[in-house]
């Protein structure tokens, strides 16, 4: 694997504010890195430094082995960047904007034609190419922003909150695109939307208050959830009481929560001690007690929980057990 981006000890201060605090990581070809963190955690600042817009206070950033502060132009040539909010010239049409970008990036006529065709096709913007950008819907504007970032087929694609402010359908479309686009590139996507990480990323870095607090693939992050290996049970309301009693008495069960409760149906969640696997013993106990259930499943874990656990401490917020949306009745 070729390392495309290498960040060492990156720190950025805005006066007294330390926006990025000693961040180090590298990204290889083919990786789609989700850069997640609460608002104000330093995601955009990091991206602005990598793209050469801002200079770091200390630390180094290398793209394809070249130092960003020493070879800014060469690096900008290799990167495709969608800044936060996708700012574009409203009075230009998408086609004139794409042509401008190709010219600045010194693509040949052939490359320009190919690049624009590729981007237009990938982002489905053929029907708005000749309309001023300011008259386009938010979804189309974002796509033009993405098109602009990929026309030159960059090695490193950096997207700052590419789906922020889009409606659910548009979000879905952009995510599909991101999956298609990755391929041989390295992609970094910042977001505070966790489904996005699950949907498109091969790796996630969690950042809080400028500090890196986790670097793992989404699955292993999920497994850090308190709900990892919990067992969910859906059953008729009449059976619920018996089942709760049974679970509370079962070894290895740490807590039982009622997650859904209607007149006819109840959903329970049995959290295991130390996230150990309890499906088998729960299953056996249900059979033994003759409890009638409609569905049993194992929870992989929720990124949200992990995210909250990881970032709350750093942000100095109190973990409030009652803040959990699921009612507890252990």
């Amino acid at each position: 694997m070729t390392t495309l981006l290498d960040i060492r000890g990156l720190t950025k201060k805005y006066g007294p504010i330390t926006a990025v605090d000693d961040v180090s990581f590298s990204v290889d070809q083919g990786e789609v890195l989700g850069f997640i963190g609460p608002n104000g955690s330093g995601k955009s600042t990091t991206m602005k430094i990598v793209t050469g817009f801002l200079t770091p206070t200390s630390g180094t950033v290398e793209v394809g082995g070249l130092d960003v502060t020493r070879h800014p132009l060469e690096i900008k040539r290799r990167i495709g960047y969608l800044p936060e909010g996708a700012p574009l010239y409203g009075d230009m049409t998408p086609i004139s904007l794409l042509n401008f970008v190709c010219k600045v990036r010194r693509l040949s006529k052939e490359e320009t034609k190919r690049g624009i065709e590729y981007a237009v096709e990938k982002l489905h913007i053929a029907n708005v190419l000749y309309q001023p950008i300011e008259t386009l819907s938010k979804g189309y504007k974002r796509r033009v922003g993405l098109a602009q970032a990929i026309v030159h087929e960059p090695e490193l694609l950096i997207l700052d909150e590419p789906t922020d402010g889009l409606d659910p359908n548009q979000k879905h479309e952009v995510r599909e695109l991101l999956k298609e686009m990755s391929g041989k590139k390295a992609v970094i996507i910042s977001t505070h939307i966790l489904e996005e990480v699950e949907a498109v990323c091969s790796r996630a870095i969690v950042i809080a208050k400028g500090k890196m607090v986790a670097d793992a693939d989404p699955l292993s992050l999920q497994s850090r959830s308190r709900l990892h290996n919990a067992v969910g049970i859906r059953l008729p309301a009449a059976q619920a009481q018996a089942c709760i009693e049974m679970l509370n008495g079962l070894g290895g069960v740490h807590q039982v929560r009622t997650t859904v409760e209607t007149a006819s149906m109840v959903e329970l969640m049995a959290l295991s001690t130390d996230n150990s696997e309890i499906l088998a013993s729960v299953h056996t106990a249900i059979d033994e007690k003759g409890i009638q259930v409609n569905e049993i499943y194992v929870e992989r874990g929720r990124l949200e929980d992990v995210f909250r656990d990881l970032t709350y401490a750093v942000e100095g917020l109190q973990q409030d057990p009652d803040a959990n949306p699921e009612a507890s009745n252990a």
């Binding site: 817009f53 800044p83 700012p87 602009q148």
Partner: peptide, 14 residues
């Protein structure tokens, strides 16, 4: 104001 400066200054131009 519009933020396009970030787009412009991250293109390979000084």
């Amino acid at each position: 104001k519009s933020g396009t400066i970030e787009f412009l200054l991250t293109l390979p131009v000084t």
